[in-house]
C-alpha cells in the first residue's frame, strides 16, 4: 500500500513536472530547478492541505495525547522503520551502523514493549536514519532537478525513487492480514502527525523569516539531505563556497 501510494505520488510529480508550460529561465537552470513554476503551484496545493487538514489534526493530537504518549508513538514509528534502515546501512557498506540498527530492533521490540520505549538508547546504542535515496547518493547517483511532490513535499528524482524502493523493502508491506489497509493508513497518518508536530515551530520560524519561502525550503531540503548523506559529519569538502 505504501509502495503504491509513493509510486502514484512520484508519478504525479513527474507528470506535473512534465506539464510545466513555460520554458525554464537561466536562473532556474542555475538553481537546478527547471520545473520551478510547477513546483511553486504544488507547494501552494500542499500548503492548503497542511493548513486545512494536517495542522488542525496535529492540534487535536497534541491536545489529546500527552508528551509521554507522543514520544511512545514516535519511538514505535521509528522502530517500524528499522528493517528498512538496516537494509540501507548494509547497501551503503556501513556495517557498524547496520549492527546498531539490528540491535535496536531486537532490544526495543523485545524490551521496549514493541518499540514504544527506547531502552537501546539508554544502553548506548544511538538511533539514526537511512533511506534508499541516501544509498543511491552513496553509490554515486546525482540528485537531479528539484521537485515538489503532491502530499510528500520537497524531493528530487533520486529521492523519489528512493521513497518507492524503501516502501518495497519495508517488510511490514509483505505481511498480509485482513485489516492491512487500515494498518497502513493509520501508520501513514501518525507518521504525518509525528513529523509535523516535531517540525511545526521550525517551519513557522522559516516562513516568518523568509523573503521567498519557496527558495528557502529548497535550500533547506538540499542542505538537510546532504547532511543526512554525510551521516551528520561536517562538510569539509570544497562544496562550501569560499567567502
Amino acid at each position: 500500500m505504501r509502495g503504491f501510494k509513493a509510486l502514484i505520488a512520484g508519478l504525479c510529480g513527474l507528470v506535473l513536472a512534465g506539464c510545466a508550460s513555460t520554458p525554464p529561465t537561466p536562473e532556474q537552470i542555475a538553481n537546478n530547478d527547471p520545473y520551478e513554476a510547477t513546483n511553486r503551484q504544488t507547494m501552494v496545493f500542499n500548503g492548503k492541505i497542511d493548513r486545512y487538514v494536517v495542522i488542525p489534526t496535529v492540534g487535536v493530537y497534541f491536545l489529546l495525547v500527552p508528551e509521554g504518549g507522543r514520544r511512545g508513538v514516535h519511538n514505535f514509528l521509528g522502530n517500524l522503520s528499522l528493517p528498512t534502515i538496516f537494509v540501507n546501512d548494509l547497501l551503503q557498506g556501513e556495517v557498524k551502523r547496520a549492527g546498531q540498527s539490528a540491535a535496536r530492533l531486537v532490544i526495543n521490540t523485545g524490551f521496549g514493549f514493541g518499540g514504544f520505549f527506547d531502552p537501546a538508547r539508554k544502553m548506548g546504542i544511538p538511533g539514526h536514519g537511512e533511506d534508499f535515496g541516501q544509498t543511491l547518493s552513496v553509490w554515486g547517483a546525482g540528485e537531479g532537478p528539484y521537485l515538489i511532490l503532491p502530499f510528500f513535499g520537497p524531493s528530487n528524482p533520486r529521492d523519489t525513487s528512493g521513497l518507492v524502493t524503501d516502501a518495497l523493502i519495508d517488510p511490514t508491506n509483505f505481511i498480509r492480514f485482513k485489516q492491512h489497509l487500515w494498518w497502513a493508513g493509520t501508520r501513514e497518518y501518525f507518521t504525518y502527525l509525528d513529523l509535523r508536530g516535531q517540525t511545526y515551530q521550525t517551519i513557522q520560524g522559516v516562513q516568518r523569516s523568509s523573503v521567498d519561502y519557496y527558495s528557502s525550503l529548497r535550500s533547506l531540503y538540499r542542505q538537510l539531505r546532504n547532511n543526512d548523506i554525510r551521516n551528520g559529519h561536517p562538510d569539509t569538502s570544497q562544496d562550501l563556497p569560499d567567502f
Binding site: N31, D212, S215, S216, R218, N226, N227, D235, L240, F243
Partner: peptide, 25 residues
Amino acid sequence: VTDFSVSGIFLALEERDQFTSFLGQ
C-alpha cells in the same frame, strides 16, 4: 564567524539561495 549551521543547514547559504532567487524574479 562567517556562517553557522544547525543540523547541517548553513544559514548564510540558505539566505543567499533565497535572496538571489528573489532578485532573479
